[in-house]
């Protein structure tokens, strides 16, 4: 059980939760994730560790309410407890420090960049963050991200804030820009189509690019193999080998296909939840 100490809505369907989980806070590294279960007979879902505070024993997670479990989680209030939380799981990304790193975040993936980019900056990297959303109200954690990077680039589909267009279009501009703008590394965290587009953008540039994959998962310790992904023709388990992989080697077709395995069941469960008004 882990008590929610602070809850903050970021968008109508995105909530930030600061959770008392001292053991996880103590051993967490940027880029790792936790698995939570919210109710009896509930499912286990992976969530990226957005931030951690070792002194206060707090772990920050951001949840986007898109399914039964995430809605249950988003409905919890300050003082409520998360039934089960385990971690930290997975490995932090392996990147050599000392270059210019661009973190690209789409949707609630932007949250995952928070402590990652802070750590990179502390280790001497020059850090740029590109985050995108349909509209400026859907951009999350903008102030926090501005603090942890040297340069924050906002993108919106409708031009309501920052660059009008996709994150990958802005990324392309930076790559094509002068030497000071061009990244040495790119880190992509967000929806699968966005990460794939980032991989395509940097594929022929020689810029090392990593994507954070979040396939379906149960135990998170390498036991079920449900999270297997193909990287450069080799099968890997995202939970223990990942979640970061060379984006240019990821078989995105397969990853997208596997992520849709339970679409029907998920919508059935979501309908039931809406009808019963619970959760």
């Amino acid at each position: 059980m882990a008590a929610i100490q602070e809850k903050r809505p970021l968008t109508p369907i995105t909530k930030l939760l600061r959770v008392h989980a001292p053991l996880i806070a103590e051993s967490a590294n940027a880029g790792q994730f936790v698995i939570v279960r919210v109710r009896e007979r509930g499912e286990r879902i992976p969530l990226t560790i957005t931030d951690y505070d070792r002194d206060r024993g707090l772990v920050t997670i951001v949840v986007q309410e898109v399914g039964v479990t995430t809605r249950c989680l988003g409905a919890l209030q300050e003082g409520d407890e998360i039934l089960d939380i385990v971690g930290p799981l997975g490995e932090a990304p392996q990147l050599q420090p000392g270059g210019h790193i661009i973190g690209v975040g789409g949707g609630y993936g932007a949250a995952a960049l928070l402590c990652l980019m802070r750590e990179r900056k502390e280790q001497g990297d020059r850090t740029t963050v590109i985050v995108g959303a349909r509209h400026k109200d859907l951009l999350i954690l903008v102030d926090e991200l501005r603090e942890v990077c040297d340069n924050l680039e906002l993108c919106t589909d409708d031009g309501s804030a920052g660059f009008k267009g996709l994150v990958t279009e802005r990324l392309q501009q930076l790559i094509d820009g002068d030497q000071s703008q061009r990244p040495d590394y790119v880190l992509a965290i967000g929806p699968m189509p966005m990460m794939r587009a980032v991989a395509d953008t940097t594929r022929d540039t020689g810029i090392a690019t990593q994507a954070s994959l979040d396939p379906l998962m149960i135990d998170g310790t390498g036991m079920c193999g449900g999270c297997r992904v193909t990287i450069g023709g080799e099968v890997k388990f995202a939970c223990v080998d990942g979640p970061f992989f060379d984006a240019h080697q990821v078989d995105f077709d397969e990853a997208v296909q596997r992520s849709k395995m339970y679409v029907k069941e998920e919508s059935l469960a979501a309908c039931r939840q809406s009808e019963s008004g619970t959760g």
Partner: peptide
């Protein structure tokens, strides 16, 4: 890696630990 291929661990864990045989009463 096609959809519908499981390790026995995943198959049995979904059923035994996560009680998938009771879906949708159980969430998995």
């Amino acid at each position: 890696n096609l959809n519908g291929v499981y390790s026995a661990n995943e198959f049995l864990t979904r059923i035994n630990l996560m009680q998938a045989f009771q879906f949708p009463e159980a969430d998995t």
